[in-house]
Simulated assay, not measured.
Amino acid sequence: MSSDLPISSPYRSSPGEVVSESERNQLNVRLNAAYTAGSLDPEDYQSRLDQLFAARTLGELVPVVTGLPPLRTYDDPAMVVSSGGQPGQLAPSRDAQRLTLLVVAGVAVAVVLLGLLLLLLL
């Protein structure tokens, strides 16, 4: 069976390793999520569950994981994390005091520099 899994995947790189209960539970969660999202039809879901719980080695799990959405290996940056609103809703405004202070300080520095420059030129 051909697989789209990378060779670095533990299912392909160490196919003889025994399946741990932790691995089995993680794959069960992934299968449930894929089924709930509609990525798997009921027959495919049941078939993969049967293979998951019958497998003894990681290599036997290749047909179970092939085609599943990849595991998320990162967290969203805090700046883009949802505040719980729905798409299209306006988010609460951010505190603008710090930005205002920086802009005012920048303008003040520019005015002072221009004043010094004019004094030097005259």
Results as ranks from 00 to 15, higher is better:
P69W: 06
L90E: 14
Q89R: 09
Q51C: 00
L102K: 04
G67V: 02
L68Q: 14
M79I: 14
V64I: 08
V107N: 06
L90D: 13
D50K: 11
P87Q: 09
L99C: 01
Q51Y: 02
A91R: 15
V62L: 00
Y45P: 04
P63S: 08
D95L: 08
T66R: 12
D76T: 13
A91W: 03
D95T: 06
G84A: 03
T66Q: 15
V64F: 05
R56I: 11
D95I: 01
S82M: 03
G84T: 04
G106D: 07
V103E: 03
L58K: 07
G67Y: 13
G88Y: 09
L90R: 12
R94P: 04
P70F: 07
P92A: 14
L102F: 12
E60V: 01
D95V: 07
T66S: 15
R94T: 09
L61Y: 07
L102W: 10
L58I: 00
V107Q: 06
G59E: 05
P92T: 12
S83E: 06
V103L: 14
Y45A: 10
R48S: 10
R94E: 05
R94S: 10
P63Y: 10
A108M: 13
L61S: 07
P77Q: 08
L58D: 01
P63M: 06
T100R: 15
G85H: 13
V80L: 11
V104W: 05
E60N: 02
A55F: 06
L58A: 00
L71G: 13
L102A: 14
S83H: 00
V65C: 06
V64Y: 10
R94C: 01
R48C: 13
Y74V: 04
L71Y: 13
L90C: 04
S47W: 10
V107I: 15
V107L: 15
A105K: 02
R94A: 10
G106N: 11
Q86C: 05
Q97P: 02
V103P: 00
S47K: 10
P69F: 05
G88V: 11
A91E: 11
G85T: 13
L61I: 08
Y45I: 02
F53C: 02
R56N: 12
F53E: 00
L102D: 10
T73P: 01
L61V: 07
A55I: 01
P70W: 03
A105Q: 02
D75A: 07
L101G: 07
P87Y: 07
Y45Q: 05
D95K: 08
T100F: 14
L49A: 04
A105G: 12
R98E: 15
L71S: 14
L52T: 05
S83D: 08
P92H: 12
Q89E: 15
D76G: 09
P87C: 13
V64M: 03
F53S: 02
V107G: 11
A54K: 10
F53N: 03
A96H: 08
G84M: 03
A54W: 02
V62S: 00
S83G: 09
L61F: 08
T66M: 08
G59P: 06
V103N: 05
L90G: 10
L99T: 05
V62Y: 00
L52K: 02
P70Q: 08
G84P: 07
P87E: 13
T100K: 15
R94K: 09
V80S: 09
